[in-house]
């Protein structure tokens, strides 16, 4: 039994409740005990760091200090934005002692930050700490037949100096996990493009345009659905999909799953528990592909073939 601290963030208790629920299912299956940080506060999200640098570090810092009081050496965070703020605070505090000394004064009374807890996004925790083999071993209901476009968004792997995880431009960790679940990850070039994020509220048109492009490329890649590991990505791609279809006169019909929802399905949890009712785009058509045999496309007709590195004998 492993233990890990858990920072749900505000969306996990609201819009992305299904993420929270399925994370708990996945963790239980993988024999990981989650301990929620007691009395956690807002991470500051996108607002704090546009207003005050100190505030943007002080808010996450309190959570970091609280996390250090628990005995776990790792804290995992489902929300990409919370993860980004916490990790940025940790990296900056660790690298810049002057900043650390200044910001530490903001959390007097809670204790002193020591930097001993590792911070990992849910995706990173699944990929690095659980491991593909262990995940594979727990799969009882492989989701083979599904073709999935893995969408990472902008915060899970970028900037590299902060996240220190996977490739910032063409990450593959989520692709590998869905493949471990039995599905096929489609080659998807827009996996780290911007979805428009919080412009969803202030300037919806931008989101329609950017998220529209992501949906278009996901469809082009042959995917039945999109997989995400970030509440905001999910909400933009799912909630805005009908608006996008209306604006650009297209039809995508691409459900947007949380990675942990698919993991929970593969681990044998009943669909009824996934809270699919909260999704705007119905998921049934995509889930219906489970069990189908994917035919590998034939190799293109031999033209001027690129040369393989090894030698060959005639």
């Amino acid at each position: 039994m492993k233990e890990v601290s858990y920072f749900p963030g505000c969306s996990a208790h609201g819009t992305s409740e299904e993420f929270d629920e399925t994370v708990k299912m996945v963790m239980k299956t993988m024999d990981v005990e989650m301990e929620e940080i007691p009395d956690w506060n807002c991470c500051g999200a996108t607002s704090a760091h546009t207003l005050s640098e100190s505030l943007s570090y002080a808010l996450p810092l309190r959570n970091l200090v609280l996390a250090e009081k628990l005995s776990n050496d790792t804290m995992t965070i489902p929300c990409a934005s919370c993860y980004q703020r916490m990790k940025a605070t940790k990296v900056h505090m660790d690298e810049n002692p002057e900043l650390a000394a200044r910001i530490n004064t903001a959390v007097v009374g809670e204790g002193n930050y020591e930097g001993k807890v590792a911070i990992k996004s849910m995706l990173q925790y699944c990929y690095e700490d659980m491991g593909l083999e262990a995940i594979k071993a727990k799969v009882t209901n492989p989701i083979s037949g599904m073709k999935l476009a893995c969408y990472y968004g902008c915060l899970l792997t970028r900037p590299k100096a902060i996240t220190q995880f996977d490739s910032p431009e063409y990450p593959m960790s989520m692709d590998r996990i869905v493949e471990a679940l039995g599905a096929k990850a489609t080659p998807f070039d827009f996996k780290t493009e911007c979805c428009g994020a919080s412009f969803s509220i202030s300037d919806t048109d931008i989101v329609l345009q950017l998220s529209g492009k992501i949906l278009e490329m996901a469809k082009e890649s042959g995917a039945h659905a999109i997989v995400v590991a970030c509440p905001l990505c999910q909400s933009n791609l799912d909630m805005r999909q009908h608006d996008i279809e209306k604006k650009y006169h297209v039809k995508y019909d691409l459900p947007v799953f949380y990675l942990t929802q698919l993991m929970a399905i593969a681990f044998g949890f009943p669909k009824a528990k996934m809270m699919f009712a909260k999704h705007i785009i119905p998921v049934d058509s995509a889930l219906a592909h489970i069990g189908e045999v994917i035919e590998e496309p034939k190799k293109p007709v031999k033209g001027k073939k690129a040369v393989q590195a090894e030698s060959e004998v005639e």
Binding site: V307, Q308, A309, S311, E312, V313, E314
Partner: peptide
């Protein structure tokens, strides 16, 4: 000679 190897002179485009 029956063995084919990527051709360095042609930047590996042929053998």
């Amino acid at each position: 000679c029956p063995v084919k190897v990527p051709n360095e002179y042609n930047m590996g485009i042929d053998k």
